[in-house]
């Protein structure tokens, strides 16, 4: 009697658990970004018209992208995107602390975040002792002449990633 009841209990419990796992998996998949959202994740930007020392903001995956052609007095950094003799700062324009957009101040050549007081230099490096613990993220890019395809990983980007100069975005 009790073994029969145990069997029924375990059979019911087993099928219920199976259904619950299936339901949770379906819920998890429903909550994921749609294929159309993922497919739209590539943007091409033209760097040839950028003026040295002037910040341009582009848009990629809904996020602001900072493009700053460096002037000669701005220090070189391995994070720079180099095309010919021109050096560019290309980063996602969101503070690595919690994602506000830092404002560029051309007089002290700093990106200042109003939310929690983070600061980044013209190479996107975070100043120590402030909330952000990482430099501004470099988006995946591939160089095509004077153009950049954002969202695709080129050799230069993969090298930066391997050298731990930026995080995966």
């Amino acid at each position: 009697m009790s073994t029969r009841r145990n069997f029924m209990g375990m059979a019911l419990g087993g099928f219920t658990a199976l259904g619950a796992v299936g339901g949770l998996y379906a819920a998890k998949r429903t909550w994921e970004p749609l294929p159309s959202v993922k497919a739209a994740g590539f943007t091409t930007i033209d760097l040839s018209e950028a003026k040295a020392g002037e910040l341009v903001t582009e848009k990629w995956r809904g996020k602001p992208i900072f493009v700053l052609k460096k002037t000669d007095d701005m220090p070189y950094h391995d994070r720079d995107v180099v095309i010919g003799s021109d050096r560019y700062l290309i980063t996602v324009g969101l503070c690595t602390h919690l994602g506000c957009i830092p404002a560029y101040n051309s007089s002290d050549k700093m990106f200042n975040c109003a939310c929690h007081g983070g600061k980044f230099d013209v190479s996107g490096i975070n100043l120590p002792g402030l909330p952000p613990s990482f430099p501004l993220d470099i988006p995946p890019f591939r160089i095509e002449g004077t153009k950049l395809v954002l969202g695709e990983k080129g050799t230069e980007y993969n090298k930066m990633l391997a050298d731990k100069l930026t995080r995966k975005v």
């Binding site: 994921e32 749609l34 613990s133």
Partner: peptide, 30 residues
């Protein structure tokens, strides 16, 4: 933007989890 970024867990860099919560790379229709 800021509150969902909390779920990246700082150095855990769980950006995939944040995108899952948002259903997009940034807060949008989903």
């Amino acid at each position: 933007m800021v509150i969902t970024n909390l779920f990246a867990g700082g150095s855990l860099e769980a950006t995939g989890f944040v995108e899952w919560i948002r259903g997009d790379y940034v807060p949008a229709q989903a």
